[in-house]
Design a protein around this nucleic acid. Structure first.
Length: 287
DNA sequence: AAGAGCCCCAACCGCTCTTTT
DNA sequence: AAAAAGAGCGGTTGGGGCTCT
């Protein structure tokens, strides 16, 4: 038996929101809150909209302190860094960028940032590659007001200085790597870790050469692949310089530097002490 | 000036996860 | 413990606006 629809699809308005609808929704939520029930909210607010649609509209557009418009270089860096570490976990990435929504970041990544970064990648594999015979090193960095906990295969991306430095490490998205959230706002990366190994799809970038590989996720939460990961050619350009390079030339001809930066500019921290029964180490994310 | 093609982004869809009954 | 309901997430789409020819 299929699941009942969340709303009567025949009797709900779809498409762009009108100013009247916006003001009704905004006014209602400001006065009464969401009541923890989005499904019932449109009826109470006098809107012919699906609850999910109301939620989306509120979260992505109407709620206070939403930031629209140009992303700053700092925001670019944070997005790139987190994407390189955790993949398309937009909600988690959005939590690091006050005022930005997951939808915004997702759109920005898909339409602009990805292209901006890809524009730098040569179409050939790098000369030097390094095989992982053991789990990759962890990053431990001081945190600011927010703390994220992930693991990475790359020592760090120095200030996210350039696209190629961003992606010279493993660039992965694995099906077994799904953070779950608790009501306290803590996200635990413990799914799929009950067994000793999980196998997921690993996407890797060899300084621009993209390919899918199989990856292994061990019981203690480390991920490493069967393939190799580029470690060369970090480019210490500022984002502004990169933008200039993009605009100046379609072909990139950038001298390489050491790929492995040693400074720790991000705020990803691995808490080795956090464990859960039967589930090995836990990756935690606080915000 | 007009048509075609492209780009961007708001919104939808369908799925999984969490909570409630 | 199981089922149902609700919340949240990520992928995808469609249309409006912009740019190019």
């Amino acid at each position: 038996m299929g699941r009942a629809p969340c709303c009567d699809k025949a009797n709900v308005t779809k498409g762009p929101w009108s100013p009247e609808e916006d003001s009704k929704l905004k006014g209602f939520i400001e006065k009464y809150g969401t009541g923890g029930n989005w499904i019932a909210l449109p009826h109470k607010a006098g809107l012919k909209r699906c609850g999910k649609s109301c939620r989306l509209r509120w979260l992505n557009y109407l709620r206070p302190n939403i930031k629209h418009g140009e992303f700053s270089d700092d925001e670019d860096q944070i997005i790139c860094n987190l994407y390189a570490n955790i993949g398309s976990r937009w909600s988690i990435i959005a939590a690091q960028l006050p005022g930005r929504t997951d939808n915004d970041i997702k759109n920005y990544w898909n339409t602009k940032l990805k292209k901006k970064l890809m524009g730098f990648f040569p179409k050939s594999k790098p000369q030097h590659q390094q095989n992982f015979s053991s789990p990759p090193p962890l990053i431990q960095t001081p945190s600011t007001s927010t703390t994220s906990t992930y693991y990475t295969t790359q020592p760090n991306f120095e200030s996210l200085s350039t696209p190629s430095s961003l992606f010279s490490g493993a660039f992965y998205q694995t099906k077994n790597y799904n953070p779950s959230s608790s009501s306290s706002g803590e996200v635990n990366f413990n799914k799929g870790m009950d067994s000793d190994f999980g196998v997921g799809d690993l996407m890797m970038f060899y300084n621009g050469y993209e390919e899918n590989q199989r990856s292994m996720l061990s019981g203690d939460g480390f991920l490493w692949g069967e393939g190799s990961v580029s470690t060369n050619a970090q480019l210490d350009y500022s984002l502004e310089e990169l933008k200039q390079l993009i605009s100046n030339s379609g072909s990139t001809n950038i001298s390489s530097k050491d790929a492995c930066s040693t400074s720790h500019s991000n705020n990803l921290v691995f808490d080795e002490n956090m464990t859960q029964p039967h589930q090995g180490k836990v990756m935690s994310y606080y915000y």
